[in-house]
Design a protein around this nucleic acid. Structure first.
Lengths: 348, 348
DNA sequence: GTGAAAGCGCTAACAA
DNA sequence: TTGTTAGCGCTTTCAC
């Protein structure tokens, strides 16, 4: 572990270039109105000295930090259960990087952490926040609201239904569910069951809604509650089979659930997709591709969601209307919904 | 997206409490030598005003940032292929949080990013760096070295063999591999094969070394090269079976590889574990638990690695000897190796 | 177009 | 024990 050396200041550059600090500052910040000859001298001096602006000093006067916080509740979300969060992070990181912003990661484990995060956000260390709030009773949203920071949410928040001052990005859970169920119907399946996720998460609720859009008159016995885990999928599949032995298709709320269902189906001697067709949601690769048979599922553009969240926030920071995001639909509330695609493999 | 309000300064607190800025500063920073009565007045003022210190101003004078960078090369590592990285991050986050440090995440995609990261690290925004460098020819290490920042590496770096100024944390890949192969031997297996990972990563090389420790005289035909993916595992397993139809056990370099091997074994009509026993590495849950049959594998304490990395770095920053980490062995180089445990499921 | 000077909010000598 | 003072490195009026 080496120690860090003292770094050159604006002052040093100014001296070397034979100009004032103000001029160097202008050049460094790309301002107009500096004669090219001088600017060139300054650039050379910067180069020679290996000058890098001190962000702390700059923040002190500009009140900008070129940094954005990403806040996620670790135990409540499925953040660490699958590569989902990592992919969002990647998208966020790409976009922030492209605009020279840093990513400060704030993970919360419980109540104690909330106070800390609140303090941090209120402390004016970052210019905005990207918040993942998947649960109805998540305290995080109120917290960032209290901090008064520009914020974009990941996933449609369950609270605040009617508000249009809440900016969020989500994938089209409802539409994706519809396409899955329609696909099953197109295969000639008539007894289509659904295993839901935990319904206090909007993604699960929306997928159920999509299922109902296509099958409004479904027998309630064909809907079983899961919890986004494969164990939950197994339990629900057993229930379903006991209640409705004649079912010929299952739409599972996510891939893990589908994997559990697949296992029970096999154990009961039912062939997939011949006897029962199965469609999942997420396209979580290690699960969907490795399952046996490989899973037909609804893919969402997870990295794209992350990128879009960052883009919306950055635009908001620059004072532009965040609704202007390109390439994405803009529904009533200030939410942006990304499309999903059905990936056909072997189970349906 | 709300706008942020102007926040109270030290000055404001001082005025309200009827003391000088210096006194407030002392109280806020928990310094000794302030009369309790005054301190109490200050605390009340802080409370009433909702004062939060401005970190930028503080950094400017202390040259400390209470922030640590986590640097990871996204495409080169398996960072986003599995929950591995997320878990390390969680451990890091916990430890940093406990010491009031922020986590700045720096993800690199390619060459352009390296310059950016180098600039950032050299820019004195963070007090230290946690670097994931799994490849032999990774340019990142040189980069952080150039930035002159205290650094701890995640995973044993392949370069710098003899140096003792390199601090890293790794899990006991070699010992874990040994325990896997010994377990197989204990089961009475005599023709034990190994599917390696990409050997330019030290984790893969170390696992191979562990295999060889226990089976020094293994027929080279019993070792096939994989790449940490299930596809690679399939290919290698086919090779192995073609070359040595009589093999009765396989130690796969990781769980994904094992999953691929399992598939080929089944496809060839071989029973697991009756005909061929299989052991993986990682205990990557969605794969190890969902595989059919559930995978016996070597578990590493991934979160613990992250936590330890952070702890070592923080100690280094405080000027203490980083080698003093509790609860972990301290080998010759300044690397800390965390133990692994064998998790028995159904495949061996 | 360029420079001089005044802070941004804080800590750390140094005096008192 | 407490206050006064001098910056930390930068941006930004405001003169020139």
């Amino acid at each position: 572990m080496t120690q860090t050396a003292p770094r050159p200041t604006l002052e040093a550059v100014a001296e070397r270039a034979g100009v004032s600090r103000a001029t160097v500052s202008r050049v460094v910040n790309g301002a107009h109105g500096v004669r090219e000859a001088l600017a060139e001298r300054v650039r050379r001096a910067v180069e020679e000295l290996g000058y890098v602006p001190n962000q702390a000093a700059r923040s002190l006067v500009t009140r900008r930090h070129q940094a954005v916080a990403v806040v996620a509740a670790e135990p409540e979300t499925r953040v660490f259960a699958d590569p989902y969060f990592a992919q969002q992070l990647r998208g966020i990181s790409k976009e922030l990087t492209a605009h020279d912003n840093q990513l400060v990661l704030l993970l919360t484990e419980g109540r104690e952490d909330h106070a800390r995060v609140g303090r941090y956000l209120a402390g004016g260390h970052v210019d905005g926040a990207l918040v993942f709030s998947l649960h109805l009773d998540d305290p995080l949203p109120a917290l960032v609201r209290g901090a008064g920071l520009p914020t974009v949410f990941g996933g449609r928040p369950g609270w605040d239904e009617g508000r249009d001052d809440v900016v969020y990005v989500d994938s089209d859970n409802r539409g994706g569910a519809r396409s899955a169920v329609r696909h099953l119907a197109g295969l000639g399946r008539t007894r289509v069951a659904h295993i839901t996720g935990p319904l206090d998460q909007t993604s699960a609720a929306d997928r159920l809604a999509g299922f109902r859009d296509v099958r409004p008159d479904t027998d309630p016995a064909l809907v079983a509650r899961g919890d986004f885990t494969s164990g939950g999928g197994e339990r629900a599949m057993r229930e379903l089979l006991d209640r409705c032995p004649g079912l010929d298709a299952v739409f599972a709320a996510n891939d893990l659930t589908a994997a559990g269902a697949l296992r029970v189906l096999r154990e009961r001697g039912l062939r997939v997709p011949d006897d029962v067709a199965v469609v999942g949601f997420d396209d979580m690769l290690p699960v969907a591709e490795e399952s046996d048979p490989p899973l037909t599922t609804v893919r969402q553009d997870i990295e794209g969601m992350g990128r879009l969240m960052a883009r919306l926030l950055l635009r908001g920071l620059d004072g532009e209307a965040p609704e202007a995001a390109d390439g994405a639909s803009v529904p009533a509330a200030s939410g942006v919904i990304l499309p999903t695609t059905l990936v056909r493999r072997a189970t349906a």
